[in-house]
Each structure stands twice: as structure tokens, then as C-alpha cells.
Amino acid sequence: MTLAHSLATFIQTNLIGDDRSIRIDEQVALIDAGIIDSMGLMQIVTFIEQETGVHIPDDEVVPDNFQTVGDMERMVRRLQARSANA
């Protein structure tokens, strides 16, 4: 399972529950749709860090990196590349 997939599952279970019609895919705008609240954001950051072992610095926790599951995956790849080059 890709990170985007496991993130989508995590968000579906923890942040949405079972009675909404919305299905999370790579393009759903999670912030604009009000799916992520501050509690949810913290859970997502922790989840990504646990799943990937990548540390997400505070200045990366910005709207551009968390609007969609795809954005989150791209951020992780960028951070991984950065630490590989460091």
C-alpha cells in the first residue's frame, strides 16, 4: 500500500467515520472541505511520522503540504530526498 493509500484509509476511519458520502482519494481538498481540523492535523502528522520515519518540521506544516493526500505524499518524498542528500 502506498503512503497515499494508507493516509486515505486513516483519514476515512479517524476523521470521517462511516456516515458521510465522501470518499478520500488523492485529489479531495481536505482543508477546504473542512475534513481536517486541528486535532485531525496533529493525528495526521503523527501518523505520517510513524509510518515513514520522516520528521516533519513545524515550518512544513502549512496548507500547501496538507490540502490533499497527494500533497502530503509529495512533501514526504521531498523530505526523504532532502535527508538522503544531507
Partner: peptide
């Protein structure tokens, strides 16, 4: 704005 409240640096 909700979107600002979400992100501490914002």
C-alpha cells in the same frame, strides 16, 4: 479563518 487556525505557523 478555520484554515489559518489549523496551522500554527500561519
Amino acid at each position: 479563518p478555520d484554515q489559518v487556525a489549523l496551522f500554527p505557523v500561519e
